[in-house]
Amino acid sequence: MPIAFEKVNYQYAPNTPFAYEALKNIDLAFELGKITAIIGPTGSGKSTLVQHLNALLLPSKGTVLVLDRTITHTDKPKELKSLRKRVGLVFQFPEYQLFEETILKDVMFGPLNFKVDEATAKVQALDALKMVGLDESFAEKSPLDISGGQKRRVAIAGILAINPDVLVLDEPTAGLDPQGSKAMMELFVRLNKDHGKTILVVTHDMEHVINYCDNVVVMAEGEVLTHQLVGDYFERKQQIESIKMNLPQLLAFKEALIAGGFDLNTPMRTLDDLADAIAMELSR
């Protein structure tokens, strides 16, 4: 069961003077069971792309295959709910979607909508809250009286509680403190490794890409520039700089060392890889 885009175009405000083609002829297949990063400069169409995955947007042209569903411009799949149960989408800045009296109720809202019974929904909600690092003392607070970062976590818990097979996150860590954003990325890795969830994450943070993701999709101006293994992608420095992204610190450091005369040509993903390579080089 694939998640794939076939020749997908998407136009905002079609047939008006404001028409804008946000996606151009996208061909893309995501690997199930992996963590895939989607990167690209602002306005490159990342958010537009991910909203196709649970049929919030229908392609203007082309086909989107999601699990056992085929989504095209004309045939809006019936029973969207069952698709949305399996593909959870966390929006960019999701904190504005909170509305219930208490945090617990807000997190239970999703599962209840998907016809989970009250008791189970409560268990799932408390679980999800724990996963995002909010203990039970938060359960009875109002979601409007907590900090922005905490709201973000509640909103993410609201999708986690639905327990989808595919989790799509649009810049989940933007605006979180470094510790919080690290914990969040580690949570996604856990969900992927321990529960086999497919994770698609839009991010601007190259450190997250190199540290946590398996694959990377690069977008620019509504097109997919490349779709590769993370390790392979970062081997090509020019590729990264051509889309105005910074190298991850690790690789920037490696480049500086190479410029300074070190001979480091092995591929590396972690600090340990780099340390080993330097040690090797020094002992020669």
Partner: peptide, 16 residues
């Protein structure tokens, strides 16, 4: 825009 965004976000949480 805001209404659209919230509608989509809640639709992702199973609102119909």
């Amino acid at each position: 825009d805001e209404t659209n965004r919230i509608m989509k976000a809640q639709a992702s949480r199973g609102v119909d």
